[in-house]
Design a protein around this nucleic acid. Structure first.
Lengths: 216, 216
DNA sequence: GCCGCCAAGATTGTCAACAATCAGCAAGTC
DNA sequence: GACTTGCTGATTGTTGACAATCTTGGCGGC
């Protein structure tokens, strides 16, 4: 294995394990165990841990090692609020820059989403959801916002997984997504930003409801 | 020196040196030289570099070492756009949470700013500017947004220094600041967000003008 | 004079070993 | 039984040395 590949392997291996729930929030990450598990040296394990700490997935405390970061609902709400304004900025910019080909692709995704909801294919809908958000970010080409959004997404994976388990969500978010697509297609930055913010405000609402023990 | 103090010393020493312009954008940061200069071991120098890389102040490339990050005007604009929406979120939240005592303090700062502009004390105005933004963030208590804003500020120090060198800026930004203060005092989140975004949009405009070679 | 190549020194990446600190368990005391 | 203390093994932090890679200056060729 080449030297630089070892660090990649360590970082992505550990990231994947955390995002998959193989290490639970609060769980301690022991370097020696990770060396075995990931098949890399301690040097690379330590480097990977530092990188994931910078991404907010891991908390490192001096002399106490690294733990998977616990993200409370309140934190998840805050993170989602930040995402809301950033993705609003991105949607506005996408509306200002979208090409005809890109608009067609957005519509295509919207159609597939409608079909997935009608067919009750929620896993498929979730994938399309991600694809839509990702395409909008590509259209916008705002690398600063992109980087931050990507980092924050990693911190919210667990909460988003729990949200996606609730069958009522797609019916609520589909029309929101459609409104976003329409505003971008119409090249209306203000409407795109408002639609995206409304959509993510709805996610925040769902997070709060989940905290209160109910989901609509 | 205690062990954990060495890392603090390395990180803050290097951060300060970069923010003060003692290392220029693009300049290479050589570990051995930093060990001498900061009076810490190579281990701590490397750790400090990684932390500053996570903050976006430094770029690290495998086998080529660390360089002070160059932030182009386009990047500065993007970063400021992100700040615009985040500080808008923060201002809205401050408007929703402000206490009477905090509102008085905001007004006090506004008064001091007016005086500083009248007296042509631009350095003082700049300090008050920071104090105002910092207080608004305290009032809002949005730690996720706060952390990101703080990180982004570090990346923009150079550009903000150049902006503050232009005597026309305070006359433009003072009424903008006053509008922000008023909206928060009136507990109007929407107005606060709009006022903050307008203010920072004006900063973006000034950045673009600086790029084009003129400043109004 | 300019360009390309190569060697040497500079620098970064990494390791094994050791020092420092912590966590958990067992024993003792109240 | 509950609490405290001390010890031991586990774990993290760090060092000095060496391997790997890069950068630069000098030399030779055109």
């Amino acid at each position: 294995m080449s030297a630089d590949a070892a660090l990649d392997k360590a970082r992505e291996g550990l990231r994947t394990a955390i995002l998959r729930g193989e290490y639970l929030p609060g769980e301690r990450l022991v370097e020696a165990q990770l060396c075995e598990r990931l098949g890399v040296s301690r040097f690379n394990v330590r480097a990977a841990i530092q990188e994931l700490a910078a991404d907010g997935l891991v908390k490192v405390e001096r002399n106490k090692g690294a733990h998977v970061r616990k993200v409370s609902i309140d934190e998840a709400v805050e993170i989602t609020e930040v995402r809301m304004v950033l993705e609003g900025l991105v949607a506005a910019r996408a509306a200002a820059k979208v090409t005809d080909a890109q608009a067609s692709e957005l519509d295509e995704i919207g159609l597939l989403m409608r079909r997935a909801v009608s067919a009750g294919e929620f896993r498929r809908y979730s994938d399309l959801n991600q694809r839509l958000h990702s395409l909008i970010r590509d259209v916008a080409g705002h690398s600063t916002a992109d980087g931050i959004i990507e980092t924050l997404r990693g911190q919210l994976v667990r909460h988003q997984f729990m949200l996606s388990l609730h069958p009522g969500r797609p019916a609520i978010s589909l029309p929101q997504h459609e409104r976003i697509i329409e505003a971008i297609r119409e090249r209306d930055p203000k409407a795109a930003e408002d639609a995206m913010r409304a959509h993510i405000a709805s996610v925040i609402e769902a997070l709060r409801d989940m905290d209160a023990g109910e989901v609509r």
